[in-house]
Write a protein that binds this DNA or RNA. Sequence first.
DNA 1: TTAATAGTAGACCAAGCGGTCTGTTTAAAC
DNA 2: GTTTAAACAGACCGCTTGGTCTACTATTAA
Lengths: 205, 205
Amino acid sequence: MDKNLKRMATMQRLQVTGLELFYRNGYYNTSIDDILKELSLSKGAFYHHFDSKEDFFVQIIQNLVVRKMYTMLIEPIEGHENSLELITNCFENALETAVHNELDFGFILGNFISEFNGKNPMIMKHLSDILKIWEVNLVSVIQKGKFNGYIDRHVDSEGVAVFLISSYMGIRTFMVENTPSARKYRFMIQLRQYFKSIAAKKEIV
Amino acid sequence: MDKNLKRMATMQRLQVTGLELFYRNGYYNTSIDDILKELSLSKGAFYHHFDSKEDFFVQIIQNLVVRKMYTMLIEPIEGHENSLELITNCFENALETAVHNELDFGFILGNFISEFNGKNPMIMKHLSDILKIWEVNLVSVIQKGKFNGYIDRHVDSEGVAVFLISSYMGIRTFMVENTPSARKYRFMIQLRQYFKSIAAKKEIV
DNA sequence: TTAATAGTAGACCAAGCGGTCTGTTTAAAC
DNA sequence: GTTTAAACAGACCGCTTGGTCTACTATTAA
């Protein structure tokens, strides 16, 4: 095989498995040997491709996490239809994959933020940046919703974004603890309730 | 000093410092030596009082965390006044202590749940129990609010509780990441907005 | 005063960690 | 075919971890 392709393939395999394990067991609780064992690779291979465990993790964030974030939580809410409906569907889908215990990149962020908070400012910076992307996109979608007449013009777009991100990260933590499907269901109903309250009041003019 | 008093005092000191460090650095990332160093105590002292690190942690949960949970998040919302107002004030206060980086026991729970999820079912059970206490109390307060005419009788009390716990744990994670005070402010406004939407509609009869 | 025991100190251990280093295999370049 | 460098294997190192064990000290009961 072409050397460069082989390099890419190995790095990709390491990163995918790495994220999987970091997600399941946490960063500090996952050893490099754990990842290597899963792939039947050696220390030599790992340190040939990555400088350190930290460098490895940062690359995972920048490659896998950012990309998935876009496809799961950002792209689905872009468009010119009803913003609130788009966000609702997006959350619905994201939480549904979470019910089935698949990788959920909104949740991953929250998890890692708790883990690295106060310990590794450099990694925190990277996590913050991604969260910021999500936040900025939410704000702009909400503002679009105001212009399009779907959302009440008096609401604070920034505030809604903060509230949405919070409740999403929160329900995800709460879902791992017990009865994920039932909690998702209840959560979505209350989210719709909240959305109704910030929707534009019809024909008051 | 009386031996039994001394025993209690040492155990208490260990637990308080232990919780502090576990909260700041995580359970797996805090060594027993870290705690011992802080108090200038030895391994001998520790293992004379506790069977293991795990046993130590469980005792912290059962003593400190449960108690603080009551004083911070449960007792403040008991009473016969407007439930929604009580909860609002309670969240306001709890988040304010969080802004000042003090121990926040609602957040502690969320943090530990992420950390132990899938790793230590026994500890997860203990954390779940505490969360359940919070949840049950919220539900009963909300139901009281319905009876008292403060909350719309059609809302799902269980759902509201899920939504509240989620958003609380979520905003706490989000607050550690950046500008805690501003985010708290924005969050509270949206929470009030949500509360308004589930409040009993006045004199429609 | 003495015997017994709770409390404490800290050397020690095996296991696991991130990371290094040397040697071997593999594949592209000539 | 030979050379060269990338890809990989795995022994090894220094350090930290949770936990044990033996010895010393302080306190209480007799």
